[in-house]
């Protein structure tokens, strides 16, 4: 399976990733509504992208009281079933990287890797976001 990786040394802080992601996730541009983040540190010496890595041991998935979060068998992507989601916020609290957000219908929402070809990677001109191969995840 593949997962996203963000590199601080290459990130320019342009936030094009946040723009394309928000447009897909929220139906319009606003970096605050994206499914990843870019932090600024130390007078902007550093821009640090923070992305959902489809954890091997996903706290969000384990915390969901109604099993609305599951891992797709083929791709390994951790997905939220919006029909099942009861908007309790357990997954949002569980993710220490705050990679889960509320969508505009009030459901939990997270990175789904754009069905395998992430827009954020496509529009990352400096190459700071990469789709990399992860070791096989044991079935859980």
């Amino acid at each position: 399976m593949n997962y996203l990786r963000g590199e601080f040394d290459l990130c320019t802080g342009c936030e094009a990733c946040l723009l394309v992601c928000s447009n897909r996730a929220a139906g319009g541009y606003n970096p605050r509504l994206a499914r990843l983040k870019v932090f600024r540190e130390n007078e902007n010496l550093i821009n640090r992208p923070l992305v959902c890595t489809q954890c091997e041991n996903p706290f969000c998935m384990h915390s969901c009281p109604v099993s609305a979060i599951s891992r797709a068998e083929k791709t390994g992507v951790v997905l939220i079933d919006k029909e099942k989601c009861i908007s309790c916020g357990s997954c949002i609290k569980a993710c220490p990287d705050q990679m889960i957000r509320w969508d505009k219908t009030g459901k939990a929402d997270k990175c789904d890797l754009c069905a395998g070809n992430p827009l954020c990677v496509q529009y990352c001109v400096p190459g700071a976001l990469k789709l990399v191969k992860k070791r096989e995840v044991p079935g859980k």
């Binding site: 290459l10 320019t12 936030e15 902007n44 010496l45 400096p126």
Partner: peptide, 27 residues
């Protein structure tokens, strides 16, 4: 490293730390 404004692929900014001399450490 290169630094860009919002949504800019050009990234004409170049941030860093002065490495030597009396201004060493200045960002």
């Amino acid at each position: 490293r290169n630094v860009a404004c919002a949504g800019c692929p050009i990234a004409c900014g170049k941030v860093g730390l002065i490495r030597r001399g009396r201004r060493k450490g200045l960002i």
